[in-house]
Design a protein around this nucleic acid. Sequence first.
DNA 1: GCTGGCACTCCTGGCGACAGAGTGCCAGTC
DNA 2: GACTGGCACTCTGTCGCCAGGAGTGCCAGC
Lengths: 340, 340
Amino acid sequence: MSLDDRKLEVLRAIVEDYVETQEPVGSKSLVERHQLGVSPATVRNDMAVLEEEGYIRQPHTSAGRVPTDAGYRLFVDRLSRVKPLSPAERRAIERFLIGAVDLDDVVHRTVRLLAQLTRQVAVVQYPSLARSSVRHLELVPISTTRIMLVMIADTGRVEQRLVELPGPATADDVMELRRKANEKLAGQRLSDTPPLVAALVDECAPDRRGTMACLASVLLETLVERSEERLMLAGTANLTRGGVLDFQGTLRPVLEALEEEVILLKLIGDLEPSKTRVRIGDENEIDNLRSTSVVSTGYGPGATIVGGLGVLGPTRMDYPGTIATVRAVARYVGDLLAQN
Amino acid sequence: MSLDDRKLEVLRAIVEDYVETQEPVGSKSLVERHQLGVSPATVRNDMAVLEEEGYIRQPHTSAGRVPTDAGYRLFVDRLSRVKPLSPAERRAIERFLIGAVDLDDVVHRTVRLLAQLTRQVAVVQYPSLARSSVRHLELVPISTTRIMLVMIADTGRVEQRLVELPGPATADDVMELRRKANEKLAGQRLSDTPPLVAALVDECAPDRRGTMACLASVLLETLVERSEERLMLAGTANLTRGGVLDFQGTLRPVLEALEEEVILLKLIGDLEPSKTRVRIGDENEIDNLRSTSVVSTGYGPGATIVGGLGVLGPTRMDYPGTIATVRAVARYVGDLLAQN
DNA sequence: GCTGGCACTCCTGGCGACAGAGTGCCAGTC
DNA sequence: GACTGGCACTCTGTCGCCAGGAGTGCCAGC
């Protein structure tokens, strides 16, 4: 059975009202608040069909209807028009992001901005190392047998690691290693570096090989294998809006999931170019998050994508607004990164 | 009116039972669970006095008694013996912290460890820059008019900032500036650097002075004035243990406060040497946290203190256990830092 | 100064009644 | 055939009531 236009319109109205009021919506209030042009009784018939099809449900007989996950899905896919950001919001984004002094600052500001605009929990991934290129490697001698390795990526990320050398190294040694390493690795994508790093060791003068090997192993372990993804979270307090009603009474599982970086990375780490992904309720693979929805997208300078960002909230969420905001913020952040 | 020993014993019993059961405790169950050697009626009299003095209160007539903030305070100050950590806990701490590869990792592991052991919200401040010394300054040319300034502190912190130069600088220029800066600043406490940085500019050859001035201003702004304190949080999900009972029904204000880094810094940033600070309920200056208690202490290599850490939970908290854990973790982290 | 006893207070949970909201269905109308 | 008005039905939430239980405060006695 297919749904005619009016039934879809009814579904849209139900979603919109429920998102706004947080209360099951009945046929009478529906015709009052929307220009449906039919009587409550007709709407009731439509609702019965929508329920049959699994798009809405009744918490109990004789309460109003509430959208199901499938209902939200249909709404997002077919019924919601993109809600353009207000000029005030655009200005807010610009004002907020301008003046960031470094990458940490950018991420920090972005995540807070997202949380504030959407009034949800925001997550921003740092630019992924796997998608970055080496801009520069620096070796800073700390003592004769210790070097601090600093890698600066084109995305602005800076990683450092202390390297314990097998034996003492002279300033000349360090200079030479540094020169060589930069020569070979600068400009390379991090994911392409493993063979280059290996070659680096072979090219070294025999007496420096031990030191270089040591350095190389740390380099590999740190920057590629461990491939440290970092992220930042903000707005958890927003989970408490809407009282205890959302999240079936307890924030517990949601807060627990938010503590796991691995989970968060899964959430926002889809990174398909310029697509905004919406996961609604049960569509989430993480059990703890089956009562939430996640809107995420990738960001990066120009068309490339270096990281993900997104927000998480109750399934009862303003999808059009949230999607628009997430997209806009991602674009602004991308532009910001492009400037470097 | 002073409190004799038995009354104090009664208070201790009330606190212990309430912390454990989370329910108002009555005179009868009290004599059953503790060897007080007197009858419930006597305990009731003592309780009346304790209530008079403000150490306990009744949620309503004919419920049991609950400790007040003042009651907890007295308990912490005079009634609780330090609870030594179990060998298992000690092992857990060691196992958890060993193998940290850099400062980020140390802080990360520490905060999770603390949250796990105390089952509360944990906060760990990164070593404060104000309390660090410069170990090394590195200038990395990114382009002819851009330098990345990397500062490595003795505490392991690494800060970087992109510097936009007024005009192009040669490799020689950069080398020279780097040499000079390190000569003057290495080993200095960051808080002592401002005059030295100023002197640095004056000493420069005139044609390099512009560049150096630019560098100097970023250096000052970044490392001293903005004096960026960072921190890390974990265990917010623990706030939901104990149901909705703690925190007078809503996590909202607590979660909000936890989002504000400034507030968190105030909480754990007392940093009196080797003293553990306990703030109970109303003793907190932050309104949003009046229903919580905070146990915090400083940590650092040896006797010096470079940062703070602590936990936050409901006033109904296992103070002896929490205090012991916070102290122990702080000591371990200090030792770890001392090894570098 | 401690104790047993007793009356009192107040919370809690179960029960029934009732109003309100919303539905499903049916017969009637366009 | 689609829509509508009307009506009976169901379920929730709330209120008042009552009994049970827990815990206290107080008092007289030891």
